[in-house]
Amino acid sequence: MKFLRMIKFDMLNIVRNPTLLFANTIFPFILIAMMGFVTKNNFGGNTVSSYDYYGVNMTIFSAMLITMTAANTFMEEKVKKGNIRMVYAPVSRASIYLSKLLSTYIFGTVCYCSVLFLGQTLFHLNLGGRYLPYLMLLIDALVLFGCCFGTMFCCIFKNEERANGIMQIPVAFFVFFGGVFFGIHRLGEMINSISIFSPVYWVSECAFRLIYDHDFSIFLPVTLCLLLASIVCTAVCHIAFKPEEYVC
């Protein structure tokens, strides 16, 4: 019961932050509209429009940025001061970082499932039609990985600014080699081979296979790999998190 109250408390902190609300709801649509408009002439009469293409990729890109929401939920200065009492409360140390992680995941899941649903129903983007629930599950797995990844960096570096600064390096790697802004294959075979180490690349590849080919061959492996990576990040959180350092 205490743990559920902690999650509720953290959820309220996220919802009350207009920047986090904007970044995880309105911002993806702005990116889709902007990238779709700028590149619409490049797609010509193809069955995949620029808005369809970036509807998928910009949602994936925004979902990957949930790492920063997780860092803010965990160690933003105002939130951190209010959460100090949790450190001294009779709760396990795991429940402290898990409440931040799970509240961010719940928030991200609601936001990005809503983005996908509205994108398909209201803005008529091709997001899989009746296969939309599978795309939602795939994005949810990416959101979980992003939450665990962001929380892990906070546990390691003990400071939001430091964690965000260093975390941007691997996140930028994931996004760039994931090819969400342009096809990474255009940069040559060597660069293309590096992309296999980006989870964003595999989520994007899986998403387009689901939508246009109804191909589920890599859906389960990609989802399981994201879950496995999330478990590893959570294990690192458990090892690295020290409540007394959270107070300092």
Rank of each mutant, 00 (worst) to 15 (best):
P90W: 14
M167R: 02
T109V: 15
M136C: 14
A33Q: 04
G36V: 03
I194R: 04
L127P: 01
Y212H: 12
I166Y: 08
M35F: 14
A163T: 10
P133N: 03
R5K: 12
A23K: 06
Y201Q: 04
Y212V: 04
L227Y: 09
A89N: 05
S49Y: 04
M34R: 00
P133W: 01
G44Q: 00
N17R: 08
A235P: 00
F216D: 02
I84G: 03
L228I: 15
I166F: 09
R5G: 15
S193Y: 11
T223G: 00
I32Y: 05
R162H: 04
A94V: 07
A235E: 08
T67D: 08
D10T: 03
C206K: 10
C113E: 14
C155P: 03
D213I: 00
I194W: 05
F145Y: 12
S198D: 07
V15I: 15
C225V: 13
V203T: 04
G108Y: 10
E160M: 14
F208Q: 13
H124W: 04
F145T: 03
F173R: 01
F37L: 05
L125Y: 12
G165P: 02
W202D: 02
L228A: 15
D10G: 08
L132A: 00
R162A: 12
K2S: 11
V48M: 15
G44I: 00
I60E: 09
M6A: 01
M86S: 07
N17S: 13
L210M: 14
D52C: 03
I169W: 08
G150Q: 13
I166A: 05
D213P: 00
G150C: 12
F176D: 02
L102P: 08
R16C: 11
V56Y: 11
L102S: 06
Y54R: 14
M34C: 01
I211R: 10
P199V: 07
L142N: 09
G119N: 13
D213S: 00
Y212K: 01
E76Q: 10
Y131Q: 11
T73M: 15
K80G: 01
Y134E: 11
G165M: 03
K81G: 14
F123N: 03
I184P: 03
G165W: 02
T121I: 05
Y134H: 12
P18I: 14
L137A: 09
T67G: 05
L65M: 14
L227S: 01
A240S: 14
F61N: 09
F107D: 05
E244K: 02
Y105R: 06
E189R: 11
M68Q: 13
I96T: 03
Y201C: 05
F145M: 06
T104S: 15
C206H: 01
A172E: 07
V175G: 05
P90V: 13
K2E: 13
F107E: 04
C225Y: 10
T69L: 11
R162Q: 06
N192L: 07
A70E: 08
Y88W: 09
M1L: 06
M64W: 09
S95M: 04
M75I: 06
L137C: 06
M68K: 11
M136A: 13
F173T: 01
V115I: 11
T121A: 10
N72W: 06
I239R: 13
R5F: 08
E161V: 10
E244C: 00
F153I: 07
T151Q: 14
G45S: 12
H185L: 04
V143W: 09
K100D: 12
N42P: 00
F37E: 00
T47C: 01
N72H: 06
I211H: 06
I184G: 04
L132F: 04
